[in-house]
């Protein structure tokens, strides 16, 4: 059996695991049944292990980290979200976060499932040590923003049902959620700045300009501006609570557009198939 087939099987195994986990986490909230939450978390852990194996097989098959195209980025992004959730869940005893994070996780891995999984050699512009650094940082940064959005969703729910004993038991207090969301955004913002800077260093070597107002670059800047407004309002104007939670969710929608929307809707140097054919000019 070839490695691509093994990877595809493992990938779909992980996808099914995440789907089941999402369903259980939603039931956990709907039925207010702690057991379903526990099962959701365990199945997510199994899905995560299978997903890790799929990424290992992909890495062996391609001879590089799986960060080079839309499929690889999406599957690694989903993996990073699952990892962030498991860490948060362990550190803060925060199972209810799964109800908010698994739908995001499932959307991302679902997007990966729709992309071309074939293994192709890297085009010259991608043959750089900066690929792993730049894209790896982007994945962690986007993962942190995803967690912040999930926590903000929880904030809004906890705020709305603050007398419900189930919510009181399973979701931390709003003040704590607010701080957690802020901390996740702070991490995401720092890493996004690094993503932009490493991208600029790489762009200078590959395209001769560290900043060219390419739509992907510009949307990364727009995302950066949105979160910097959030940080200013929070630190200086005391914007906390519900408004901050909505801001965090809107910021994450912008992150998703920067990742998916720009590549599919706008012509960009980051749409690598485009540049390949343009550059060669022979096919």
């Amino acid at each position: 059996m070839d490695l691509l087939k093994i990877e595809t099987m493992l990938f779909y195994g992980a996808l099914i695991g995440y789907l089941l986990s999402m369903v259980l986490f939603i039931l956990f909230f709907v039925n207010k049944n702690d057991k379903q939450g526990k099962y959701g978390r365990n199945i997510l852990l199994i899905g995560f292990v299978i997903h890790t194996l799929a990424l290992v097989v992909r890495t062996i098959n391609t001879g590089r980290l799986p960060l080079s195209n839309q499929y690889e980025f999406a599957t690694t992004f989903a993996w990073a979200i699952a990892l962030c959730f498991l860490i948060f869940e362990k550190k803060f005893d925060f199972r209810a976060l799964g109800t908010f994070v698994t739908p995001i996780l499932f959307l991302i891995i679902g997007y990966a499932a729709m992309r071309d999984k074939s293994v192709r050699p890297l085009m010259p512009a991608l043959q750089s040590k900066w690929l792993a650094i730049h894209v790896g940082l982007a994945i962690i940064s986007y993962g942190a923003f995803a967690v912040a959005a999930g926590v903000s969703g929880m904030y809004l729910l906890r705020d709305k049902f603050n007398q419900d004993t189930f919510f009181k038991r399973n979701i931390p207090e709003t003040d704590k959620l607010d701080d957690l969301s802020y901390r996740a955004i702070a991490l995401g913002f720092l890493l996004l700045s690094l993503v932009i800077i490493t991208g600029a260093i790489w762009a200078e070597a590959a395209w001769g300009r560290y900043w060219a107002w390419d739509p992907k670059e510009t949307w990364a800047l727009i995302t950066w501006i949105i979160y910097s407004i959030y940080l200013h309002l929070r630190i200086s104007k005391g914007w906390r609570g519900e408004r901050a939670a909505w801001f965090s969710i809107i910021g994450f929608i912008c992150v998703i557009f920067t990742y998916v929307g720009v590549n599919t809707l706008l012509p960009s140097l980051h749409s690598y198939a485009y540049i390949l054919y343009e550059a060669i000019g022979i096919f």
């Binding site: 107002w213 739509p215 510009t218 949307w219 800047l221 727009i222 501006i225 949105i226 910097s228 407004i229 200013h232 309002l233 720009v262 706008l266």
Partner: peptide
């Protein structure tokens, strides 16, 4: 902040 918002919106138009 107003400047950042305006620059952000215009940048979207530019994309």
């Amino acid at each position: 902040i107003v400047l950042l918002v305006v620059i952000g919106v215009l940048s979207i138009i530019g994309t």
